[in-house]
């Protein structure tokens, strides 16, 4: 049975989808990623879809769900490399992948993830120095 490999690089998990995704393969990837995030304590997930010739509602939902689940597991997901024709089709179909962070390519996606791992969002207006008695 087809399985999409998940590579670990430091605190990141990297997935590159290089096959025409069957529905069950997509679901298996979603499960595998959640498990790997927990096992490895990964803080970032990068999903490269540059080889995908279509993203239909099923694959789109898999991507949205994966991003939401990883957020709950304290990891950020960035989807990179979507082809322009795929983007046009997705929007026309009615899917906007809301809540999913995207980047044009792997480089930019990795930078985005590193930034969010190294400089996690702090509460607005609160710096480490605040509240220190002087």
């Amino acid at each position: 049975m087809e399985r999409i490999p998940i590579l670990r690089i430091g605190e990141m998990l990297l997935v590159s989808i290089q096959v025409d995704l069957q529905d069950h393969t997509a679901l298996m990837l979603q499960d595998d990623l959640s498990n790997r995030i927990v096992e490895t304590g990964a803080k970032g997930v990068l999903i490269d879809i540059s080889a995908l010739e279509i993203v239909d509602s099923f694959i789109g939902r898999m991507i949205s769900t994966t991003a939401a689940v990883s957020r709950v597991l304290d990891a950020e997901t960035v989807v990179v490399g979507m082809q322009p024709a795929v983007a046009i089709t997705l929007v026309e179909l009615g899917l906007t992948l809301s809540g999913v962070r995207t980047a044009l390519d792997v480089d930019r996606g990795l930078r985005m993830l590193r930034d969010s791992v190294e400089f996690p969002v702090v509460e607005r207006g609160v710096t480490p120095d605040d509240g220190r008695a002087d």
């Binding site: 099923f58 082809q83 024709a85």
Partner: peptide, 28 residues
Amino acid sequence: VRQLVRDVATAVRLSLVDQTKLVTAASE
């Protein structure tokens, strides 16, 4: 089905965007 639709769409020379739309519709 997606692959066959893509092949035929390529053979009649639909644009890449139109191929992608047709294949996506076929997949749904």
